[in-house]
Structure formats: C-alpha cells, structure tokens
Design a protein around this nucleic acid. Structure first.
Length: 127
RNA sequence: GCUACAAGCCAGGCUAUCGCUCGUUGUCAUCCUGAGUUUAUCGAAGGAAGCAACGGGAGGAAAGUCCGGACAGCACAGAGCAAUGCACCGGUGAAUAGCCGGCCUGUUGAAAGACAGAGAGAUAGUGCCACAGAAAAUUACCGCCUGAUGUAGCUUUUGCGGAUGGGGAAGCCCGCUUAUGGAGGUUUGCAAAUGGGCAAGCCCUCCUUCGCUAAAGCUACGGAGGGCAAGGUUGAAAACGUGGGGUAAGAGCCCACGGCUUAUGGCAGUAAUGCCAUUCGCGGGUAAACCUUGCAUGCUGAAAUGCCACGUAUAGUACCCGGUAAGGGCGGCUCGCCCGUGAUUGUUGCAAAACAAUCGGGGUACAGGGUAGGCAGAUUGAGCCCGGUGCGUAAGUGCCGGGACAGAUAAAUGAUAGGCCGCACAUGUAAAUGUGUUACAAAAUCCGGCUUAUGGCUUGUAGCUUUU
RNA sequence: GGUGCUUUGGCAGAACGGUUAUGCGCCGGGGUGAAAAUCCGGAGAUCAUGGUUCGAUUCCAUGAGGUACCA
C-alpha cells in the first residue's frame, strides 16, 4: 500500500549541502533536454531528489518556483517503480535535476521527459 | 459611451484526483529511554519516526533597498579633524528625507484657485558663465565732458621781401624780375616847339595786394592725461525702474513715486510670516561647483548573536616583541588614554633590581587543515483590522467592544482535469456560439514609511461625443 | 540577507557643464583581369524618465540592465 502513494516528503528530498556538493563533484551525469541529471548511488535505502533552476535563466522568483513545482510533480508521480527496485536491492540513490531551458515548461512534455529519465536511471541501476 | 484625475475595494470562486508544510489530538506491532519486580523475547509511563483526523498556510506591493526604527553584538575616556546626512514654521509619531496643516517663492489663470518647490548662506572666500556682445563683474571698447603738447586755417599787429641793366636817333630789340595795382615826386628819353605833352616794371616815397617770419586771439583736426557710467545691433542674464532736479558731462549724487532688502519698534500670529512706521542699503547668475554656517550621527547587521554536536594540526614557514614591547582597543585620522610577559639558570648587587641565555608565551603575514549540522534568535507586535465614541482643521490619538494574524530553510503554501462567475477578442441584428484567461509579482528576523510594477470593480469631479 | 562599482555606434574606447573624439568593423566610390592592401567619401551612439542650469554624456533623483564583494 505504501508504494502506491505518490509522496515526496522531507526525507525523499535532497537537502544536505554536503550531499549536493558531493553529487556535483563525484556523481554521474547525463542530459535529456531540457533537463540535466546528476545521480550517485548511496549507502541508504532511500531515493532522494532535488531540483535547481538558475537565476540567470529566470530572473523572477515566480517563474523559478513554477518550473521547480512542475518538475517535482512529474517526479513524484513516476518515481515509485525506481524506489521499489532500490528497496529490493537495498541501495540508495541521489538524483538532482537542473533545468536548462530558457522557455517556461508546459506540463506534458516535462512529464514525458521525466519518464525517459526514470527509464534510463532504471537501466543504469541494473548495470 | 470615452478620456483624464482623485478616493476606496478585490486580488478569482467550485468540484474531483494526487501532493507539500506547520500545529493540535489520537494511535503506535518498529526504534529509544525505561519505573516495576517474577530477571522474562514481561513491560507502566514518556519520546522519535510513521499513520489517521481536524485546523492554519504569500502580498498590495511580499519587489526595489531609498529612508527610519525595534532587536542583538562589540565599544563607551575624552578632545580636535575628517566623513556622512539634514536644512521655512508648527504638529504628528518609536523614528525619518515619511505624513498633516500653515508660511513664502515660482508657473498657470481674468479671478477664485490649481500645480510645483533639494525652501539656510552668492555682502566669508575661491571657481565657472561657451557663442554673441563694448563689457559676463567694481571694468571701460564706442561714447559724453575736460584737455597739455601738436597740426591746419582765419583775423589783428610788428618786421622783412621785387627786377644791376645793355644796344639803338626814336618807336624798338636784348636781358632780368614766380608780389598786384595805384598815387605823388624825381630822373631819363622822345616828339613837338604856343601852351598843355607822350613814354618808362627794373629811380624815390606812400598806399594797396601778395609772400615770409614772430606774437596774440578764434576755429577745425588730433590728443597725453583726467572725469563719467546716461546711451550702445548681443545674450539665458547687462549693473534698481520711471520722472524731475543737478552737472563740464554725468551718476541714487539729490528729490518724488514705485520695487527689493537689512535692522529696530508697534500690531496680529505658538512660529515661519504678514501689515504699519522709521532706518542701513540696492555690488548679475550658479552652492543638484568647491565651500561656509547651524543641527544630527559610536561601529556592525539575523550570514548579528548565544548554546549544543561533529571535525581538525597544542602542527608548518618567515619576521617581530622584555613595559615608552610587538601588537591591539576607543577609531576613519591625530593627540591622548587604556589593555598587553611568565618560569628556570647564570652574572652583578647587601637588597630592590638590572642584564644575558634557555624554555614557554604573545603578535603580524603567508601557506595549509577542519566544519558548514541542530536548537534558540524566529514569528503576538511602538503592531493590524472592524464597530462605537471622545479630542483634533488634519496627520493622528484616548477609551470601550469584537476579530484575525504563515513560518519555509536546496527553502512549503502546489499540480492536473472539468465546469461556473467575471473579463477580453472574433462572428452575429439579437439571442447566442467559439477562443483565451486573469495583471504585476512570491515571504526569508520584525515593524513604520517612500518609490516603482500592475489587472479589475465602485464612487466623485472635469472635458468631449451620441441620443432624448 | 547585505554592500560597492558601472552603463557612450556592431565591438573597443576618449571627452573642463559649451558642436559626442578615435581605432577596428560596415556601406558607397576609385583602384584590379579578379581580389587584398592602400586612397576618397558616408551612415551609425551618450540605458530610460524627470529635475537643477541659459545649456547636461557630465550634476541630482527615480527606475532598468550589467558586474564585483561579504560566511
């Protein structure tokens, strides 16, 4: 029952500055436009997620919040499969998205892109 | 109906599904602490995470960071300088460069009024004022007046200044004279012979004319020097304005009227200020040029600050320091003041102490190592809103009653879908249909202002247009 | 969160409050068989809006952009 709920609480978010620094310096990365993905396996069993949008792309805080909310929503609705796999393997993963497009995103394309990213992450966890 | 201005209000609402965060309550089989005793995979009670229910969850500007505070830390030994800010008056308020009222000035207007004002000082000093113009600030180009010396002309007076003459019987011929002409005399010559004559610039005298020299006077030109600032094609700006007197010419030099201004007094006003009287004056503009005057300001800023946890290197290099230390604080600078060194050994010495060495200590700079988690600050406060009421022109404020008030921290307050209300656009006579959809923008310790961005609604005022 | 500095043609970059220089680039012409270089000529700018001033790139205010710093 637990994994049918599409939650994204505090524990599922990437909040430590230290962890993020480590992710940027030592993590793997790939890009599915317009999103750049950073990820790194960890010791815990949780899947942690974070988003960032540059101030240079969007000067207004309202726009940045909008982008982050859309991406977060897409991740929340689709990440359960990956979480199950990790729980099965007893592994953890930190994932970080950076939005790189200058145009404001619409919901559906981002939803699809997030799906592709999750598939890729799934494959890589296998390998 | 449109436009402009002013004031006020709202900042979409509903349903479904899935979420985020805070609080309260409950639950809790997992974990932690663990009363109790029977020492047992016993467990009261509490807590953590999870779960459930209920409740709260961006703004009028949350923005810009332009002002002002609260609050916190450091300092509190003062003086001077510097720096920064402010600048009509009164009120308001915790405070301000905010707000309210008033005064003054300017613009506009017939006026009433409206709008604007960084609104101390240009007579403390320095600088600047392009082009044009005579000149851009106590000066002088033209000009007006006076005017030594000079030049020219005129008048008067004095003095000076013209031609040797020769030849021929004569007419005449030659020579000379750049002062004209006349009168008289004398002389010479000629002709004639009665008398009267004729001729002569170069014989004499006088007058006149002309020229020169000198003196005096007048006029004109020029003008050393002096006086004046009235007038002068400019310019953004021109030396208080108009009229009269005055003068060599002129001038606020004097007078009258008017304008501005200083001071004193009276009256009105809390005051700025206004009116009246007397009075010093009238030497441009610019201080959002430097500056001067007055007043105010200790510095820093929640990344402040306190506590807990974790971690590292009590290490390295160079230099400095023995009390008037190195260095640090007040503090941006100077003075001044304050803080800031111990032990052991040795030498000298009666001692106090001084000096030296060693060890430690302190400081500055460099290069490096570590941490960047949690709690408090921190979400209810000089507060805000509504109603009533008192005071006040108002800003505001007193009293009474009621109400609401987020708290994240890689940072929540949402996403998707569908209607509805409203709005905009398109089609349409209309009914309606279709499309789009709210603008500006997101708390980050808190509060009061200001400024800027912006959708819609209501009311009022003014103008325009249409219809009646 | 806080504090500075800065904005001049396409680019770089000067300018006492008094006509916005200069270089590279661009356009046109000349030149060449065609180009390059060179030569001649030309266009093109003070971030925006107000204010002070007779007059603002310059001084002041407000806003917009850029940039740097503070643990």
């Amino acid at each position: 029952m637990l994994h049918n709920k599409h939650t994204l609480g505090k524990k599922e978010r990437l909040k430590s500055r230290k962890a993020i620094d480590a992710l940027f310096s030592g993590g793997h990365r790939f890009t599915v436009s317009p999103i750049r993905v950073f990820y790194q396996p960890t010791k815990g069993t949780t899947l942690k997620f974070g988003v960032a949008v540059s101030t240079k792309l969007y000067k207004k805080a309202v726009d940045r919040n909008r982008v982050k909310r859309v991406i977060r929503e897409c991740w929340r609705l689709q990440k359960n499969q990956l979480q199950e796999k990790l729980t099965g393997k007893g592994a953890g993963l930190d994932v970080f998205f950076v939005y790189t497009d200058r145009e404001l995103p619409r919901y559906e394309p981002i939803f699809r892109t997030t799906g592709i990213i999750l598939e890729k992450l799934n494959e890589r966890m296998n390998g």
